[in-house]
Design a protein around this nucleic acid. Sequence first.
DNA 1: CGCCATATCCGAATTTTATTCACATTTATG
DNA 2: CATAAATGTGAATAAAATTCGGATATGGCG
Lengths: 246, 246
Amino acid sequence: MPDRAARPATPRWIEILTRAAVADVEGSRDLKQDRSRRRQQDLLVAATRIFARDGIAKAKMADVAAEAGIPVSSIYDYYPSKEDLAYAIPIQRLTAFYAEFLAEAPSRPTMRDRLHLFLSMATDYARRNPDWARLLYLEIWPSVLIEEARVRRTIDDFGRIVVEMIREGSRLGEWDARLDPHRSATILMGSVTHMIITWLLYGRPDDLAQAAGPMVDHLLMLLDVGEPPEASSGRLRATEPGDVVT
Amino acid sequence: MPDRAARPATPRWIEILTRAAVADVEGSRDLKQDRSRRRQQDLLVAATRIFARDGIAKAKMADVAAEAGIPVSSIYDYYPSKEDLAYAIPIQRLTAFYAEFLAEAPSRPTMRDRLHLFLSMATDYARRNPDWARLLYLEIWPSVLIEEARVRRTIDDFGRIVVEMIREGSRLGEWDARLDPHRSATILMGSVTHMIITWLLYGRPDDLAQAAGPMVDHLLMLLDVGEPPEASSGRLRATEPGDVVT
DNA sequence: CGCCATATCCGAATTTTATTCACATTTATG
DNA sequence: CATAAATGTGAATAAAATTCGGATATGGCG
């Protein structure tokens, strides 16, 4: 259905980014009283700390309440469940991240530079907000069952933006157009998130910010180099009965 | 301390692999009665299904028990807690995976081929055991707090093996020895696990096995290509006060 | 400035689940 | 086939999340 022939006036990655950078806060019921807004903010900060420390599953609402200095039952005035509380955290800042990137991106001349910026900024965000990052990268991103559509979409947008930036780069002739953008995106995102996860879990590399730049440069070489030649080592197996063939 | 001058008779990746391929089952108390062994096996299978379906946190022991056809309290005859039950699952098969690879690896002539095999086999394992893979890749691998040392180590071995295989390849002159093996390992593992995760969550690529080979070939190009030139795009930021400088 | 409707707060139940326990049953072994 | 050890199990306990309903605070308005 989509009309691929006509190049849209606005590249898709900007469309997605723009939507993602706003999609946010409408989710939270608008509070009428001042004190409430302050409290909700305190609650979110407290929750980030406790969830990052204990993991969502093991964290106790009592601990979160204590950290925030409010009674347990008041939490439920803001969020319907522990899970929802947990999910509110990544949404808020991911949205902010998209907004920041949207502001920075136009100052970069090429798609390559923009990709570089996107990945570096993501890494730097994690470095500066380790509690938030633990929650996002270790608990929520991979979580099996995020029915909560808003969370899922906010996270998925990350991937969509990378894929679309790669596509745009091909279109502009910055690299070999035969590259599969999904594969390239998988490599870029997988590598970067893996580096962040390793840093969160083991503290290596010591200086994440310093490691990120060269890592991303290294990754972007793949775009320059282009498609690999025919499979070098044999396939693991031939198609088997029962396999989905496409 | 380690003596880098003398090349050890056995490469380190084989040492680690050998240990990892055995480390297993001693963890589970040896059951005297036949029926028990059968039951424990049933329990593990049931748990894999339920945990993969509902996520560890939300899954109910009652459901697991029902699926296995045993009373809830009997679960505790085998595993001291829900968590321990969950952790037993990945250990068992990861160990089996290491053993399989250990058997296959010698038949490959180069380190490059062995790396290729390792990553392809890991992908194929996930494809063939999706429930298990959901548990491992989506719930346990990234989990913030796996104190259980055995689990942590079994998983960490995965990374160690990749790093050491890359080192061995450098040593043998198969690729540029100036490459940082940790960075290369991060790229290889991150990309592959990201592909597996995407497959588990969204069913794309349709045919994981078919996608894995070319993906790994593509990744291994990075080893051939060598170190990138000096940073192409500017660093995101200069060193700031408060940063760890090494 | 004081009153009212509404929003917010919170201690005390309630509910949901994991985990433990004390006794019953089964198994391997001589 | 008797016996000790190993297993099995329903019913109790415990630990948390979540709900409830009256008490309290807030902001707009006469």
